[in-house]
């Protein structure tokens, strides 16, 4: 029995503790990201935003959560029940499992696998299933149109995103996220790869269906897109998944281009602050830009969105791979080895 506990029991329990240590702060950040979004948007529009529940409205996300929990889950009579209920679960759990490979600090990672970048890419490419399943199972035309738009958009931008990731991999010489961060010790990749970083951020906006690419949820034309028929907790799972994906994309930007947990300069006042705090600061900065873009830009038209993805981003990122690849080969190998 002791053998069993030492061999399997305690490692498993330790793993569960680590998972909870990632998921709990994540859920809290999702809740307060929705709050931050409302506050930032309202500041941009010269409003006050939520300020009634709790001091400065700080308890607003908790109140929203309780409200959604107490509402009734409605399954439309024409819906395909199993798939309808599976879709939000798929979206939400995919948004959570991706966090397994994100390094929060030196050695602070749940699973330090060698193909971390590919894992993230694979998980983010699966995100489209939740949306497609929701759109189809709802048996409603608005939901289905929203799902089709969303799927086409995510598949399109994934291609250029893959190429952009390849340029980073060429510079880092590894698929392991920790190695990629360590390769940025001398200079963050955003400096040599600035055009790629901008493209990556725009693709991340499209990938998470955010403004100005939020056509799947264009409320003026599609009511609310793929999640019209969802209510209460099933809706909340979509909502949480979407915001978790936003945070995930921001952390991917931070890891790939902004040096992950590394301080900007490795000198006294900066390297006193521990790595995870730097990482959180970088994620928050990227998230702020996510919200800022929403406040500042008009929505793209659908054909313009597709044109941007296939005719602008794809050739540019492909050219980026060729140029960066040539430079790395000329340089005699990736930056990491120097």
């Amino acid at each position: 029995m002791v053998e069993f506990w030492d061999g399997y029991g305690w490692p498993a329990a330790w793993m569960v503790i680590k998972i909870v240590a990632i998921v709990l702060p994540l859920m809290l950040s999702i809740a307060y990201l929705t709050f931050a979004e409302r506050k930032v948007l309202s500041a941009m529009q010269l409003r006050r935003g939520p300020n009634v529940v709790g001091p400065w409205g700080l308890l607003q996300p908790i109140a929203d959560g309780i409200k959604l929990l107490c509402k009734e889950t409605i399954v439309p009579s024409g819906a395909n029940r199993g798939v309808f209920l599976l879709a939000p679960c798929v979206t939400f759990s995919l948004a959570l499992v991706a966090w397994a490979v994100i390094p929060f600090g030196p050695g602070l990672v749940l699973s330090n696998i060698n193909v971390g970048v590919l894992y993230l890419f694979a998980i983010s490419s699966l995100g489209v299933y939740g949306i497609l399943m929701a759109g189809w199972a709802s048996n409603s035309k608005y939901a289905f149109l929203g799902a089709l738009r969303s799927a086409a958009q995510m598949v399109s931008y994934e291609v250029s995103m893959g190429f952009i990731i390849i340029t980073v991999l060429l510079c880092a010489g590894s698929l392991n996220l920790t190695d990629i961060v360590m390769a940025q010790k001398s200079v963050w990749f955003v400096v040599p790869l600035l055009p790629m970083a901008v493209l990556f951020f725009a693709s991340a906006l499209a990938e998470t269906n955010r403004h100005p690419f939020d056509l799947p949820e264009a409320e003026a034309e599609l009511v609310a897109g793929y999640n019209v028929e969802y209510s209460a907790m099933t809706f909340a799972l979509f909502f949480l998944g979407e915001y978790a994906n936003m945070i995930l994309m921001s952390s991917m930007t931070a890891v790939l281009f902004l040096g992950g947990w590394l301080p900007p300069f490795d000198i006294a006042p900066f390297n006193w602050i521990p790595g995870p705090i730097w990482f959180a600061l970088k994620i928050s900065a990227v998230l702020f830009v996510f919200i800022w873009v929403r406040g500042a830009f008009p929505r793209y038209r659908y054909d313009q969105l597709m044109r941007l993805g296939w005719k602008v981003f794809l050739p540019l990122s492909l050219a980026g791979v060729v140029i960066v690849g040539a430079l790395v080969a000329w340089n005699g190998g990736p930056l990491a080895g120097r």
């Binding site: 696998i113 060698n114 193909v115 590919l118 894992y119 890419f121 694979a122 490419s125 699966l126 489209v128 299933y129 497609l132 089709l148 799927a151 598949v155 994934e158 893959g162």
Partner: peptide
């Protein structure tokens, strides 16, 4: 074969099966 596994998910599940489902 972790690389093959990830590529299987990216290519078949993430791209081919999406078009199929479409």
């Amino acid at each position: 074969a972790e690389f093959l596994a990830m590529i299987l998910v990216v290519v078949y599940v993430g791209a081919v099966a999406v078009l199929f489902l479409f």
